[in-house]
């Protein structure tokens, strides 16, 4: 879902226009700083445009990875390395590849991502600008606020329904939403029943 939904332009941080920012640094201390800067940039960009996942290779053309004005772009291999770092424990597990990820050529460790660097980057990855646990809290808070406890809601109602139009999780991918609800169920605050598209959830 790499379509931009926010009409307001994203304000890039100054280092996005610093040419060496688009070259992955070999020095470890500099590299660590660079990776965390990239991670913060990607998360805030996705949050701004309400992107829950990035689909490659089309996402490589986003202004995020490609600064047209500067004439610099982050190469696919480096993007892979950045995303791999974000998915690692060091990066806070902010990225997760859909469909197992690994077989698509990107692992969870930075090293693996580098080795596969120059190969084509394809596939889709979740960008957790909020983690599943945080989403669960947001959804619960909405249910509480709108007094829908005990009411059976379909996933469609939560994700796409008119009732959630102004909420952050509006437009959330069904798969991600199911994961979020799984967290709520695990906490014992809801119950999921039904199957397929008719999946229903009841908060209590």
């Amino acid at each position: 879902m790499s379509t931009e939904q926010n009409p307001k332009p994203f304000h890039f941080p100054p280092h996005h226009s610093f040419p060496p920012f688009f070259t992955l640094q070999p020095t470890s201390s500099t590299r660590a700083s660079q990776l965390s800067s990239w991670s913060a940039l990607i998360l805030s960009y996705c949050a701004h445009h309400r992107l829950f996942s990035l689909r490659f290779p089309s996402a490589l053309a986003l202004p995020l990875f490609c600064n047209e004005g500067l004439g610099r772009r982050l190469r696919a291999g480096d993007v892979k390395a950045v995303l791999a770092w974000m998915g690692s424990a060091e990066g806070g597990g902010r990225v997760e590849w859909v469909d197992g990820g690994g077989k698509k050529g990107v692992g969870t460790g930075t090293g693996e991502g580098e080795i596969l660097g120059e190969e084509g980057l394809t596939g889709r990855c979740w960008v957790f600008w909020r983690r599943a646990e945080e989403w669960a809290a947001v959804v619960e808070e909405w249910v509480e606020r709108t007094g829908q406890k005990g009411v059976v809601l379909t996933l469609y109602e939560i994700g796409e329904g008119e009732g959630t139009a102004g909420e952050e999780f509006h437009g959330m991918d069904g798969e991600l939403l199911r994961r979020v609800l799984g967290v709520v169920v695990k906490r014992g605050r809801a119950q999921v029943f039904g199957e397929g598209d008719g999946l229903g959830v009841k908060f209590f």
């Binding site: 040419p19 070259t23 640094q25 020095t27 660079q34």
Partner: peptide, 12 residues
């Protein structure tokens, strides 16, 4: 100097 973190590189 790069190794000391004073400089950074750009491969263009």
């Amino acid at each position: 100097a790069e190794e000391r973190g004073v400089l950074c590189r750009e491969q263009s």
